[in-house]
Each structure stands twice: as C-alpha cells, then as structure tokens.
Design a binder for these strands. Structure first.
Length: 520
RNA sequence: GCGCCCGUAGCUCAGGUGGAUAGAGCACCGGCCUUCUAAGCCGGGGGUCCCUGGUUCGAAUCCAGGCGGGCGCGCCA
C-alpha cells in the first residue's frame, strides 16, 4: 500500500503563499508555528483564507504560479518552506490515519518523480512507440499529445464540435495534451511515469529512505532523490504483479488514459494488470453542512442540490480527527455508565475501539457507486447498522464462553473437542434446531463473501454480510440460551454453534480492521 | 452534445451470474431487563421497485427508448 504525496502541487503552493504573504513568515517562523498543536488545522484554515485572498484580487494568482515554479525547480526559500510544510503535514496525516489503524508500506513523493527524471524516461518510451507525438497544427500546435481511443469513454467537448459540422468532418480524432507547448508536463503525464514504474516497465527506480515507524514498529519507507538520504538496503518496491489505484470516480477518464498509455506504449499485459478502484465521492448532507456553518442562500443552486460537496478551498469538510474525537467522547460516556468499575485507561481504550469501529464500518457500508451524503448524526449512531452493533454481538458471545469457563471449567476448545460425546439434539431433535443450523450455515459463508468482496472490489458486501450475521446471532442469543439450558447435550451443541459464529464474526471484523473490546 | 453512475418504505440504503408473500437501519406505534450486557430482542403500520415497451414459464434484476438527479469530458491538479 502506497500513499502518493503531492508535494509539488497547487495546494502546497497556496499554503506557502499564505504563510509568506498573509502571515509574513520566513522558514524559521514557519518552523515555530509548526511546533504548535494542530498545525494541520492551521494549514486547513489558511488554505481557505488564501483562496479568499485570491478572489479579492485575481492578480495575486501570479504569486501562486511563481511559487509553484520555484517549488518545482528547488529554488529557496520557497522550495525549502514547501518541503518543510509538506513533510510536517504528512506526519500529521500519518498520526490521524494511525488512529484508525491505517498505515502504508511506502510514501511516494511527487517531487522525487520529477527530480529522478521519471517523466523524461516515460516520455522516451511514449515517443519511441508513437503513443505521443508533437502536434504541429491546430490549437494544440506545439504540444505533445496522445490520441484518445473512442472506447476510453471520452467525449468531445461541445465547443470543439460546432453543431453545423456534419458527420463526415466530425470524426476527427480527439487528443489529450501530455506536454504543454511551454514544455511542462501535465498531471496525467506525471501519473503515467508513476504508473509505468509501478508495473515495472519504466526501467528506473527510486532511491529509498526511512521516514518513521509503522504501526507494528517496522520502518516506514519513503522515496527520495537525495544520495545522502538513500539507504543501500531496502525492500523491493514497484514492478508489481498488479496494481489497484484507489481514487475517486471523477478521475475515471484520466485513469482510462493511463491504461491506454500502457497499452499503446507496448505493454498491453501491464495495461490489463491495472485496475482503477473507483468510488463515488463523499459529500455532506445539508443538515451537516449547516452544522458546519455553511448555509447556501435560499433558492440558490447549492440549496437545490441533493447534497453539499465538500471543498477544501471553502474550508468546508469534516476532519477525520474531529469525527473520531466526537465518536470516542460519546462512546466513553456510554462505557463509563455501563461499566462504572472499569479503570479510566481501559474505558478510554474501549471507547477508542468503538469509535474506530464506527468510522470503519460507516466507510464501507455503502456500495462504492453511490454518492455518500455524509451525515454527522447518522455517523455518530451506535445503534442498528453500526460498527459497535457488530462488536456488541461478539462481546456477548465472548461473555458466554467466559461464564462457561468460570462455571463449568469448559473452554471453547473443550467444547469442540468433546462434542462427539454428546447427541446432536440441538441440531436435529430440538424444536429450535433450524434456528441454530441457520446461523451456523450463514457463518460458514464468510470465505465465499470475502472472495466476492475482493473479486468485485465491493467491500459493502462484506459489511452487509457481517451485519446480517450479527443480527442472526443476536436473535439466537435471545431465543436459545446456553448457560441456562439444562439439557447437557443441547447446551454443548448450542455453545459449539455459537462458538463457530463467534469465530467467523470475529474474523469478519478482523478483515474490516475492527477490534473487539473485552467489554462495552 | 457525448460518456459513466444513481433512481427500491417518510429518510438512508441492501437486493453476486433472473426465481416464491421485495428486505435492513433510522424514524413512528406497541411489548420484553430479579433470567448469558436493553449499544439488544419480539411484534405492527408503511412500497406504482422512476416511466414505457421488449425478452422470458418467470423481471427490482436482462435489453431498448424515455424522464429525473449527480459526476466527467482543461496546455488545472
């Protein structure tokens, strides 16, 4: 799992513009501010302020262009400030993701792709195969362009095809600019170079350094272009057997161009090994947008839309840390109320597990083709279809086995090991036999469901399955008691059945990255 | 204009390769805690599966055409 760090883009440039021209800071000043808490929140706000500042006077946009240029060409102090800010923000990002149990194998820095001339090499490959060529005519004269396949799902823009033009002439091939007439590379060009490297057809590699520690204590690797940072020994990155680009559906067109570039540049097999994992965008419900202080004018275009698009430029969005903090605070209140004797540290740890479960389940419960209108109140719910509901089922199951052990000295392993000594009454003779069978059979589908979820890239399938299994468990939990069952054979078989369900449900939660607390 | 996605209960959403009275959560109404944790369970009301045609013994599901909504189609990233 790699995280692409866009350290040479417009967003970094805008923050640098804000730091220097709105805040009047130099590198030392920025260093001091960066040590204060929540530097990431500070930059988030500053970014929105810079956007407003540009809006007040469009000529200020020249500062962005100049800053972008200086960052790309390593000209200090701009480049030094940009690099410093990018690194600090990445570190705060890692902390935030770490709270959710997410980390990466490698951080890939866009700046390194530029400095190591990946683009120059990819450009050679594309030129050699004729995938891109220098356009000499028309409005794209002087640009290196790629012809867009019709099946790439790209349509001509309305302006390019006047209505008066009839069929015969309208079929002129469409072209995508890869290198601008001023010699700079477009975003998709840089992405092509990166993609070629990922699939091992570029013929070049990054240098590597360690950036910090992963959640398990192993080194976290990052690319570098500096000899003094590069380590001789490092894991192998790139040259993947297959790649999956997780990126939202709005970039489907560019991702299609990427596949096309691979194929046309002589690597049809690599092209086939690449998948765009496209997911729909996450927007905000009107209620949540309102809560965040965004109130579209009555009768305006924004007010009429079914949701409110998040926008970093407007400073409109929900920060992951804020969401987690609220979830944990809410969970902590409940945990403390239900378990007053629990030490504070344990309660805190449990609340964190619940909060993380709530976020993770919420993120995958929707199928990826559906626009999510994020609603904070809905996300904060621990009832019904939620992460904590799933955890609750397993906690209950664990309690049964804990008490079974405390009272009868029977472990889960004992139950299964001695099962043959007991008549399977609970499965054939008992009046509730079908209910127990049903939930056991449902639990047995886990592998199949995981296979389907991975094959179709639809994680909601697993989420829905796990939720349904937890529902079935809860129903059986109420209907078929274990500890209070007097018949030894029925008790043993019920324990065995629910033990299996517990095992499968715990595994399903594990796949979703959700821990099960000791109690809740 | 062209491409992709969405349209199922008041709201938010499930419904792999067609199959029986279309499901869940939330919300609403009514029950269940001296009984393995009530973050739960049981019951109830609530649907023209956007529309029209087609394929089929059978369509929410497949096909065609509409309608409504979202997104995309830059020498931005």
């Amino acid at each position: 799992m790699q995280n692409y760090i866009d350290d040479t883009g417009v967003q970094v440039a805008d923050v640098v513009v804000g730091l220097r021209h709105l805040e009047g800071l130099d590198l030392d000043g920025v260093r001091r501010i960066a040590d204060s808490p929540r530097f990431d929140y500070y930059c988030w706000d500053l970014y929105a302020r810079v956007t407003e500042w540009y809006d007040e006077d469009k000529t200020r946009l020249q500062l962005r262009a100049a800053t972008l240029h200086e960052i790309e060409h390593g000209q200090d102090p701009t480049a030094a400030i940009g690099a410093f800010v990018a690194e600090r923000i990445v570190r705060t990002h890692l902390v935030t993701m770490g709270r959710l149990g997410i980390d990466y194998d490698l951080l890939t820095w866009e700046g390194d792709i530029l400095r190591l001339q990946f683009w120059a090499r990819a450009f050679e490959l594309l030129k050699a195969t004729g995938a891109v060529f220098l356009q000499s005519q028309g409005k794209l004269a002087g640009c290196w362009v790629m012809t867009i396949d019709d099946d790439a799902g790209v349509a001509p823009d309305a302006d390019a095809t006047p209505a008066s033009t009839e069929a015969a002439e309208a079929e002129e091939p469409r072209e995508k600019v890869i290198v601008r007439s001023n010699g700079t590379v477009t975003y998709v060009g840089k992405d092509m170079a990166y993609q070629f490297w990922k699939l091992g057809v570029l013929g070049r590699d990054f240098r590597y350094r360690t950036f910090g520690q992963r959640l398990d204590g192993q080194p976290l690797w990052a690319t570098t272009s500096r000899d003094d940072q590069a380590l001789a020994a490092h894991p192998a990155f790139g040259a993947a057997a297959a790649t999956v680009n997780v990126i939202d559906v709005r970039q489907a067109y560019l991702q299609q161009l990427l596949k096309q570039a691979l194929a046309v540049a002589g690597h049809p097999e690599a092209s086939r090994l690449h998948t765009h994992f496209a997911y729909e965008m996450v927007a905000l419900s009107h209620a949540t947008a309102r809560e965040l202080g965004f109130a579209p004018a009555e009768g305006s275009e924004d007010a009429a839309k079914p949701f409110v698009e998040v926008s970093g430029r407007k400073g409109l969005g929900v920060k992951a840390d804020d969401l987690l903090d609220r979830l944990i605070a809410k969970a902590l209140g409940e945990v403390a109320r239900r378990n007053p004797e629990l030490p504070a540290a344990d309660a805190r740890r449990t609340a964190e597990q619940l909060g993380v479960a709530a976020v993770r389940y919420f993120m995958i419960k929707y199928s990826r083709t559906k626009v999510i209108a994020f609603d904070i109140d809905e996300a904060l719910s621990f009832e019904g279809e939620s992460g904590p509901y799933l955890q609750y089922a397993v906690v209950r199951a664990n309690n049964i086995f804990q008490k079974l052990f405390d009272r009868d000295g029977l472990s889960a392993a004992d139950v299964t090991a001695t099962l043959g000594e007991h008549a399977p009454t609970a499965l054939v003779g008992d009046e509730h036999a079908d209910r127990l069978w049903d939930v056991v059979l449902e639990a047995g589908r886990l592998d199949e469901v995981v296979e389907q979820a991975t094959r179709t890239f639809e994680l909601a399938v697993l989420a829905k399955y796990a939720f349904g299994l937890a529902q079935s468990f809860n129903a059986v939990y109420h209907a078929l008691p274990v500890l209070k069952e007097d018949r030894e054979d029925v008790r043993r078989w019920r324990a065995a059945g629910l033990g299996y369900v517990r095992h499968q449900l715990t595994a399903a939660l594990g796949v979703m990255g959700i821990d099960v607390p000791a109690r809740m």
